[in-house]
């Protein structure tokens, strides 16, 4: 019985998120657009996560190259390193790692912020002062994550490739020009565009889940913590599901 309840709750939550998403799309394109708040959220979400994402991306490129290099060397295929690292970072590792980091940083902060606003009646206060809080808080945040995540992914990709180049340069004496020439030589639009489109959806998932959890948080400080925590967990899970679907669709449109 308890398990049945849990299953029922699970589907209920999926339904609620779907309704929340529907409400977002209904309000997302309606005027007035909260431009100032959107820019502020872009700053908070995009710019303030930049350092974290860039550092992670750099280490990611560094470590990936260091780990894969010996194996490639065994096959005498070190010259494939830039191509391999380039494709794996651009296609998969860059977007997914960045999205997971952002789910942790942005998802939890949105969840906690909206949760505490809900608990302290700030959302009600907004409503009575004639501002649609859904538009002001949720729509702007989701738009901000949708637009900022691809930017962060690009930054992480660029820095990750630079980290990979440093390893190649030190260990294999590969010049900057050769490294990036090889990277671009082996990238195609079939690698870049699905990854970029995927990033938009990753941003949407992080924003949507963070806002949903915060906006529907329970009363009390405990509820705020729970909202932040479950936002991260659910967002991370959904990211992988979206990634799977994205790869699936990309395979249909772009033959590998």
């Amino acid at each position: 019985m308890k398990i049945l309840d849990e299953i029922a709750n699970y589907f209920k939550e999926i339904g609620e998120i779907a309704l929340f998403a529907k409400r977002f799309f209904k309000e997302a394109f309606k005027r007035p657009f909260e431009r100032k708040e959107f820019i502020r959220q872009c700053f908070v979400i995009g710019y303030n996560s930049l350092f974290l994402v860039v550092v992670t991306g750099f280490i990611m490129g560094l470590v990936l190259t260091l780990q894969v290099r010996p194996t490639m060397q065994e096959f005498g295929a070190e010259s494939f390193m830039p191509a391999m690292v380039g494709i794996s970072i651009v296609r998969e590792i860059g977007p997914v790692i960045t999205a997971l980091i952002c789910a942790g940083k942005i998802g939890s902060s949105i969840g906690a912020e909206l949760g505490s606003m809900k608990v302290t009646e700030q959302i009600d206060a907004m409503e009575v002062s004639g501002t649609n809080p859904f538009k002001y808080l949720v729509v702007t945040r989701i738009w901000a994550t949708v637009f900022m995540l691809p930017m962060l992914v690009i930054a992480a990709d660029a820095v990750g490739l630079f980290g990979s180049f440093l390893v190649e340069n030190v260990k294999g004496a590969v010049s900057f020009k050769l490294f990036f020439n090889q990277v671009f030589e082996n990238l195609s639009y079939g690698d870049l565009f699905p990854a970029t489109i995927k990033s938009f959806f990753f941003g949407f998932v992080i924003g949507l889940v963070g806002c949903y959890k915060g906006y529907n948080s329970d009363k009390g400080t405990e509820g705020v913590g729970r909202a932040a925590n479950s936002a991260v967990v659910l967002a991370s899970l959904l990211l992988f599901i979206v990634d799977f679907i994205a790869v699936f669709i990309a395979d249909i449109f772009y033959e590998i």
Partner: peptide, 15 residues
């Protein structure tokens, strides 16, 4: 803040 955000967005777009 807006300026810094603008720089970030511009750089990412350029890349």
């Amino acid at each position: 803040r807006t300026t810094r955000l603008g720089i970030f967005v511009t750089l990412a777009t350029i890349i």
